[in-house]
Simulated assay, not measured.
Amino acid sequence: MKISPAMIWISSILLGLLSSVPQLASRHFNAAEAAVNAAITAAFALLMWYFNIYVLGRRSHQPRRQSISYRHLLGSLLFGLVVMFILAYIQQLILSHIDFGPTMLMVEVRGILINLVFYMFLYLLQQNHENQHVNMELERIRTDHLSAQYELLKQQVNPHFLFNSLNTLKAMVESGEQEAVPFIIKLSNFYRYTLESRKLDLIHVREEMEILSAYLFLQKARFEDGLMFHNELPPAVMETLLPPFTLQLLVENCIKHNVVSLEKPLHIRLYEDGGKIVVENHVQRKSGEEDSLGVGLENISMRYSHLSGGEVEVLNGQQLFQIKLPLIYEHHHR
């Protein structure tokens, strides 16, 4: 917590001077008594400034709370009472003619009021700072989330994918293949899934598998046995959640960065390991292909971080490339 030292010292001195105003108006004014009283009050105010800054500074590192901590407030008031008692005793030693009992009662009440004002001022200042920080963080997350959605939409409606799909459909129609009609249905389903799912934050894995199934059907029509997909996910994992189009984008990433041919089939494996969904493929990088994880993976990592706080693990080996996605359970998300 940042408080100007000048503000601390000036306010403490002013409080000390104000505490001596009643003595200035008294008929039996005693300059020495007024000076000692002002010094005692100023010293107390100075000590309580720094003590409360320390107490509330420690509290700022703890989980954020909306309500005031009465334990910290009571501790601050008790500390102030002890400090003021010591200072009142020092005042009594300096001004031995003063009756200690009434004087102590007066300075203790004054100390409680000063301490309470300082604590509440610092608490409200801290709350305002934390609220501003939270609002800025929420705005940053909202901006990043919108950016992630935009990148996701750009990848879902990929013009190259649509162009390749239409070329494959054209070849199938020209050759009179019977798979042309199922191909059109799957292509239609894929873009219908795109429109229905793009506004959702999370969907079930079983729903994501429908999207992936439609996508793989379209790719199999193009690559035939050059693309081999193995789904080994257990039924329990199918009921977990993940951001929409996650698996589709990861499979698309595998196809994009690796050789896919009848002579050299690309094997993609989907399974669960250690509480994570693993997308794995044998590395057979295209010639001239840069060692890049791509925008799609960055998009997925960003969405996982925002939606679940989990981290996407990337294992980029010489033989195997693995993406590990943390499982998101519905009751945890709620």
Rank of each mutant, 00 (worst) to 15 (best):
A6N: 09
S96I: 11
M228A: 14
N37F: 02
F321P: 09
A180K: 03
F245C: 10
L242P: 08
M7N: 06
I40T: 15
R27V: 07
L153A: 09
I300M: 00
R142G: 15
M209L: 08
C254E: 09
F100V: 13
K256Q: 11
F85H: 09
D273S: 11
I184H: 07
Y193C: 14
E252T: 10
G317P: 11
L93C: 15
I90R: 02
F44I: 05
I268K: 00
A43F: 05
N37H: 10
L307G: 02
I114G: 05
I255H: 01
Y191M: 04
V260N: 10
W49S: 07
L74Y: 02
P102T: 00
T103N: 10
M228G: 13
A43P: 01
K199Q: 13
L293N: 15
H160E: 10
L227M: 03
R110P: 11
F29E: 04
F100M: 06
P5F: 02
H332P: 08
V173T: 15
V36I: 09
Q62H: 02
S26P: 08
P63Q: 03
H97T: 13
V134C: 12
H28N: 13
D273W: 01
D99P: 11
F190A: 07
N128V: 12
Q155H: 08
E108S: 13
A43V: 12
E151W: 07
F223W: 02
S76N: 06
A42E: 12
I90Y: 04
N299G: 05
H28T: 15
G75T: 07
L325D: 03
N316F: 04
P63R: 00
L24C: 11
S4I: 00
L81P: 04
E252Q: 05
E210G: 09
V109Q: 14
G288D: 06
I328V: 08
E298A: 14
P63F: 04
Q219V: 03
N281V: 06
H129A: 12
F118S: 07
S175G: 13
Q248P: 10
I13A: 12
L18H: 00
G226C: 09
R142N: 14
M120V: 15
E33V: 15
W9E: 08
N231E: 00
L233G: 07
L307N: 06
L73Y: 12
H61Q: 15
Q178G: 15
D201Q: 10
S19D: 11
L113M: 05
M172P: 08
G16T: 01
I255E: 04
F85P: 05
T240S: 00
L195H: 08
S19Q: 02
Y50C: 08
S67Q: 09
V251E: 01
E207Q: 15
V134R: 11
P326I: 03
A180G: 06
L146H: 12
G226P: 14
E290N: 13
M302P: 12
M106F: 15
L78M: 07
R110T: 06
S147E: 13
A171D: 14
Q149N: 09
A42C: 03
S261I: 03
